[in-house]
Amino acid sequence: ETEYTFDDKREADRAAKEAQNNGLRVHVTKDGNRWKVRID
């Protein structure tokens, strides 16, 4: 399990989409004014 934090939602969405394309499970959550992408 890996977690990334992004300031920009577009960057978070791009990272999530890339991980999904690689067959990974992805969870995107909002943390204040930042975005967390957790990859299982």
Rank of each mutant, 00 (worst) to 15 (best):
R10V: 12
E11Y: 05
R25A: 08
V26Y: 03
D13S: 05
Q20S: 10
V26I: 04
R14V: 07
A19N: 03
T29K: 06
K30Q: 13
V28M: 08
D40K: 08
R14H: 08
T29E: 13
D7L: 11
R34L: 11
V28W: 02
R34W: 07
D7A: 10
Y4K: 07
E3N: 06
A15C: 12
K30P: 08
K17H: 10
R10W: 13
R10Q: 13
D8W: 05
E18G: 05
N22H: 11
K30R: 11
H27R: 09
R25K: 11
N21R: 13
R38E: 08
I39N: 02
I39Q: 03
V37T: 01
D13H: 09
F6C: 04
K17G: 06
D13N: 06
G32T: 02
D31M: 07
D13T: 07
G32W: 00
E1Q: 14
E18Y: 09
G32M: 02
W35H: 01
N21M: 14
Q20E: 12
W35M: 00
T29V: 13
G23W: 02
A16K: 04
K17Q: 13
H27E: 12
V37N: 01
T2W: 15
E11V: 05
T2C: 15
D31F: 08
A16R: 04
A19K: 03
E1P: 14
V28C: 06
R14M: 10
N21F: 08
A16F: 05
E3L: 11
E3M: 09
Q20N: 07
K30V: 06
I39V: 10
V37D: 02
T5I: 14
N21E: 13
N33Q: 08
V26E: 00
R25F: 07
G23E: 02
A16G: 03
D13G: 03
H27F: 12
V28Y: 03
D8A: 05
T29C: 09
F6M: 02
E3F: 11
D7E: 11
A15K: 11
N33W: 05
Q20G: 06
D13V: 11
T2Q: 12
D13R: 06
Y4M: 12
D7P: 05
V26P: 04
D8N: 14
F6D: 00
Q20I: 14
G23H: 04
E1H: 15
K30Y: 14
D13E: 12
G23P: 00
D8Y: 07
Y4H: 06
Y4G: 04
T2L: 13
R14F: 09
D7I: 09
E11P: 02
A16L: 05
T29F: 15
R10H: 12
R10C: 10
K30F: 15
H27Q: 12
A16H: 03
V28K: 02
W35Q: 00
I39G: 02
E1V: 15
A16W: 04
A15D: 01
G32L: 03
R25Y: 06
E18A: 12
A15T: 08
E1W: 15
T5H: 10
G23S: 03
N21T: 10
E18T: 09
A12C: 04
E1I: 15
E3P: 04
G23V: 02
N33V: 05
R14G: 04
T29P: 00
K9W: 15
K9R: 10
K36V: 15
Y4R: 08
V26L: 02
T5V: 14
D31S: 07
D31P: 00
I39E: 02
K36A: 06
V28G: 00
T2E: 09
A16M: 07
K30L: 08
D31L: 07
Q20T: 12
R25E: 07
W35T: 00
V28D: 00
D40R: 09
F6Y: 09
R34P: 00
L24D: 03
W35G: 00
N21V: 09
V28S: 02
N33D: 14
I39L: 06
R34I: 11
G32A: 03
L24M: 10
K9D: 03
A12P: 01
A12Q: 00
R38Y: 13
E11K: 07
A12Y: 00
V28R: 02
E18S: 08
W35C: 00
D7S: 10
T29H: 10
Y4D: 03
D8V: 05
E3Y: 12
A19E: 02
R34D: 05
N21Y: 08
V28P: 01
N21A: 14
G32R: 03
D31G: 02
D13A: 08
V26F: 04
A19T: 01
T5W: 15
E11S: 12
L24T: 03
F6P: 01
E1F: 15
E18P: 01
T29R: 08
A16Y: 05
I39M: 04
K17F: 11
D40M: 13
N22T: 07
G23M: 03
E3I: 14
K17P: 00
L24Y: 14
D13M: 15
L24K: 08
A16V: 10
D8E: 07
I39P: 03
V37A: 00
G32C: 03
N22D: 06
K36R: 11
R10P: 06
D7K: 09
N33I: 06
A19Y: 12
L24G: 04
L24C: 07
A15L: 14
H27N: 09
R10Y: 11
K9S: 05
R10K: 13
L24E: 03
K36L: 13
A19V: 03
N21P: 01
Y4A: 05
V28E: 01
W35V: 01
T5D: 05
K36N: 06
D40P: 05
N33E: 12
A12I: 01
N22L: 13
